[in-house]
């Protein structure tokens, strides 16, 4: 186990290294740079100066070595789009908000999704099942900018129950959290429901459950003890990534509901060629994902002891 973990941690470092190299190469190879003003370009002398100031005049490999050298000392540079703060400050300011939103959405999504999926599986091929399938299809196929827009129209503009935006910990009303959490939870909730139902149906039909039933165990005990447990493997695989996905911020929901989270920076840093932020966000995502995968691999062994880590 210790050896396995050690191997995975080394793997994490390798992944981060490869990601950093790839990110660096990709972002420098796409057209446009951080200081290309669109209305009228900077005069060459001024541009040369600002490139020098940020070390962008040096060869790529040298820039990379400098970056990594600083990064290893915890210095991830200054964001080009928000030069009044370091990348670390910027992430420390915005990420907690995204984490709060993400965690709330995860709780809502998993509870509602699991419940809906279990009910649909038990009541397979009844109208309840079809309704769950229908709603989860909607949850997956209706883009959430549409959902966000209609929720906003109904509950903020027509009914006036909740504000159009803001976030409780950032000076907003507590009610400002309701719409974004629902919007964000709907998709994952539908996914959870789909996978739960699918795996449960599979397991319910399998022979050992039939055997268990034949042995006279009541349906509820069978379902809770065996079925759910066996349905967990594909769910962990599919749903674990929802967690880093949700807690790294989701640009659209954050933007439309005015939540000052990290989400928009995943897009704006690329659009604005904000190199230090591109690197930081990519490394953050890589690290989060590697850790999530590691945890889900460990979870497999907990859920199903026959699975061994090797």
């Amino acid at each position: 186990m210790v050896r396995y973990l050690l191997g995975r941690i080394i793997g994490l470092i390798i992944v981060l290294f490869i990601v950093s190299v790839l990110a660096f190469l990709l972002m420098h190879s796409i057209p446009g740079g951080p200081f290309d003003e669109t209305k009228n370009p900077l005069p060459p002398a001024a541009k040369a100066n600002i490139l020098k100031k940020y070390g962008l005049d040096k060869p790529i490999y040298e820039q990379y070595i400098n970056y990594m050298g600083n990064a290893l000392h915890g210095d991830f540079g200054i964001s080009f789009q928000s030069p009044t703060e370091t990348v670390i400050d910027l992430i420390a300011r915005t990420w907690p908000v995204s984490i709060q939103l993400g965690l709330l959405a995860i709780i809502v999504a998993f509870t509602t999704g699991l419940a809906a999926g279990i009910i649909a599986a038990i009541k397979q091929n009844t109208w309840i099942d079809y309704i769950v399938t229908f709603i989860s299809t909607l949850g997956i196929t209706v883009p959430n900018f549409v959902i966000a827009l209609w929720l906003l129209l109904i509950f903020s503009i027509q009914l006036g129950w909740v504000p159009t935006g803001g976030w409780p910990t950032e000076g907003g009303e507590w009610t400002s959290a309701i719409l974004p959490v629902i919007t964000l939870a709907l998709g994952p909730s539908a996914l959870v429901a789909r996978y739960t139902r699918s795996s449960m149906v599979e397991v319910i039909r399998s022979e050992y459950i039939r055997t268990a039933r034949a042995k006279g165990l009541s349906a509820r005990v069978v379902i809770l003890r065996h079925t759910l447990k066996n349905a967990l493997i594909p769910m962990i695989t599919i749903l674990a990534p929802q967690i880093p996905n949700l807690i790294t911020g989701t640009i659209f929901v954050e933007v439309i509901y005015r939540i000052p989270g990290l989400g928009k920076f995943f897009v704006s840093s690329i659009y604005l060629r904000d190199y230090p932020m591109i690197m930081a966000t990519m490394l953050l995502v890589a690290a989060l994902w590697s850790i999530t995968y590691l945890l889900s691999d460990i979870l497999y062994t907990v859920v199903d002891p026959r699975v061994r880590l090797s």
Binding site: V15, I18, V19, A23, M282, V285, A286, W289, Y293
Partner: peptide, 10 residues
């Protein structure tokens, strides 16, 4: 894991 970290539009 590497592929997961790279944003598709980059």
């Amino acid at each position: 894991e590497v592929l997961t970290a790279i944003p598709i539009w980059l």
